[in-house]
Design a protein around this nucleic acid. Structure first.
Lengths: 121, 121
DNA sequence: AATATATTTCTATATATACCGAAATATAGA
DNA sequence: TCTATATTTCGGTATATATAGAAATATATT
């Protein structure tokens, strides 16, 4: 019961929902997630911890990066289906995120940051 | 999207989850819910408002009482199924609540309160 | 009409949450 | 070894949340 509530709470935040559904597509590192989301690194780190404590995601070291990914489980499969088929009626942001995430590659993270900074000036 | 998050947040609280799954069984008034849950009336009222704002429940006047019930919708049907079949692994409290709720009748609410008070002494 | 019951609103409080920036840690590459 | 990059931890802040009790409102019963 407690675990179920923790899962629901973990997914009841917009940024965490976006992270969760991007990771359902493919594993990503924090810098990739940051290039899609508009939050500070420290904030992202806190969100990832919440998703991990809810047992939804796991992580493994990949040299210089840490790769976050959905835990492979029956629950996560059913959860994704339920979210996308039933709960999220208008998944505009989600679809956009997933497209963006699909196109990303890890090595371009920092380059993208610079580009974004340039765009601000 | 916002609606989906509101639903998840509404159900991520233990008392609201219990309320929601009791109401999935049958409509109930606040005093019946209070005889099962261990919270103040004002707290229950706040929880019911959150569930109503998430569009999960509705209410109608029944003379002296207000009857709360699940909104009839495809979403609520799928939601209940998902919760009970997939998400809540060990629904002890839920099963107990539902049994208790099943046995309740509206007119005995106040009598039950007195009984509970007696039991404390 | 007066009282008991049912529910909500109001006020207050303690805890949780989302967020940021700065500092700390770890690894890769020059 | 020094530097750049990636991520987490820490400290602080503003807002949200769950809770209770008291007062207000509404209806039913005597």
């Amino acid at each position: 019961m407690k675990e179920a509530l923790e899962i629901l709470k973990a997914l009841s935040d917009e940024n965490r929902m976006r992270i969760y559904l991007m990771l359902q597509q493919k594993p990503m590192c924090a810098c990739e997630l940051l290039s899609v989301l508009d939050i500070a690194g420290s904030t992202l780190s806190a969100h990832l911890k919440i998703l991990r404590n809810a047992n939804l995601i796991e992580q493994k070291k990949e040299g210089r990066w840490i790769e976050y990914g959905i835990k492979i489980s029956q629950l996560n499969k059913k959860l994704e289906a339920f979210l996308l088929e039933t709960l999220i009626a208008d998944p505009q942001i989600i679809q956009q995120d997933r497209k963006e995430a699909q196109a990303l590659d890890r090595l371009s993270c920092s380059q993208q940051k610079q580009t974004e900074e340039k765009n601000l000036h």
